[in-house]
């Protein structure tokens, strides 16, 4: 009988893995306030204003103040809500987001004090599928949250996010087929190593555009923020949430943005690789990845500042009528090219 588990590229001793996951957890969750702050500050700049600049130096402590405020709030729930699921849903969102963070590679296997350590959570051979699996589960977070609230606004928002996630998940998966075929591996470290020489956003430009569009939809970022369209739905699936639970939804949202940026960096911008044949020592690699991730996140904010929200039917027809055929075509053309050049 074959193992039902995924094959893991490089596994360290158990205690290294625990330390590693702790570090990743801390890094991941400290990226959330960074993303939040960047979103607000940069959005302000794009709109000709400063953004938050009162709390701490240059407003840097604003996320801390927000978190402190939200945590200290009362935990309440509507009478019509389903208690257990209502509390569970935000936890699912956070959990899936942080689980996806585990596969983002920050560097190859390096020597740290004689021990061989991979600079990532885990290098599973199913790579991207792992990310997709968790983003599919994360949609339960939104869906259950919306349903368990027992409110129509929440439920409408949840239904919207369900439809949106499903339609964009398909295009996202197909858009990455080109990358996977060109690299010949599903493992994210393998994909990064295959980009030595040329980053994939040049040969896979169409795939990149589709991936980014789908990523905006997946992370519920504007212009695809229909699940929480403030003007029509009050707040979408998180309408009835407050305090710490709302904070976890909010954190999960920004965490997803970090992960989407990280995936874009890994799959299309060569992860820790630098252009023009620059090969810095290995300890620089994580910082290269972080820097690139932050740049992609800035792009997310830039788009948010620019594009208005789509109407719902526009969103659906963009997903199914344009992105899906385009992604399929891209996969097909890439497949032909790969077969022709490799035979």
């Amino acid at each position: 009988m074959t193992a039902v588990f995924a094959v893991v590229g490089h596994a360290e001793a158990w205690w290294i893995q625990i330390v590693k996951s702790l570090i990743l957890f801390i890094v991941g969750f400290s990226l959330v306030p960074v993303a939040l702050m960047m979103d607000r500050k940069l959005l302000g700049r794009f709109q000709g204003r400063y953004g938050p600049n009162r709390v701490g130096p240059l407003g840097a402590l604003q996320p801390m103040a927000d978190i402190a405020k939200l945590i200290s709030k009362e935990q309440f729930r509507p009478r019509t809500s389903t208690g257990f699921l209502f509390a569970l849903a935000p936890a699912i969102s956070v959990l899936t987001a942080s689980a996806t963070f585990a596969i983002l590679p920050f560097g190859d296997v390096v020597d740290i004090f004689g021990a061989k350590v991979g600079l990532y959570g885990v290098d599973v051979s199913i790579g991207i599928l792992f990310a997709f699996a968790f983003s599919a589960i994360s949609f339960y977070g939104l869906m259950l949250g919306g349903w368990a609230s027992g409110s129509r606004y929440s439920f409408l928002g949840a239904m919207r996010s369900a439809a949106q996630l499903i339609s964009y998940e398909v295009s996202m998966g197909l858009s990455l087929l080109g990358v996977i075929m060109t690299a010949g591996t599903l493992s994210l470290t393998g994909i990064v190593n295959a980009q030595n020489g040329m980053w994939y956003f040049i040969p896979q430009l169409v795939g990149f555009v589709i991936f980014m569009t789908a990523a905006f939809a997946e992370t519920n970022r504007p212009p695809f923020d229909l699940p929480e369209a403030d003007a029509e739905l009050v707040g979408g699936y998180n309408t009835e949430y407050g305090g710490g639970r709302f904070a976890s939804y909010y954190a999960a949202e920004y965490f997803n943005m970090v992960i989407a940026s990280g995936l874009a960096v890994t799959l299309f911008f060569g992860g820790w690789l630098l252009p023009f044949g620059i090969h810095p020592p290995h300890w620089v690699d994580p910082f290269v990845v972080l820097g690139k991730t932050i740049l992609v996140m800035a792009f997310f904010v830039w788009i948010r500042a620019t594009l208005p929200r789509l109407r719902y039917d526009q969103l659906m027809s963009l997903g199914w009528k344009i992105l899906l055929p385009l992604a399929t075509l891209n996969a097909l053309v890439t497949a032909i090219i790969v077969v022709v050049t490799h035979s």
Binding site: L42, G44, R45, F46, Q47, G48, R49, Y50, N53, W302, I303, A305, T306, L307, I322
Partner: peptide
């Protein structure tokens, strides 16, 4: 309309970024 106009919009917002904030503190 899908890409050209998006790029034009991106240029506009980037212009605001370069101009700097217009608000009074």
């Amino acid at each position: 309309r899908a890409f050209g106009e998006t790029l034009r919009g991106l240029k506009t917002t980037f212009g605001r970024l370069v101009e700097g904030p217009q608000t009074y503190q």
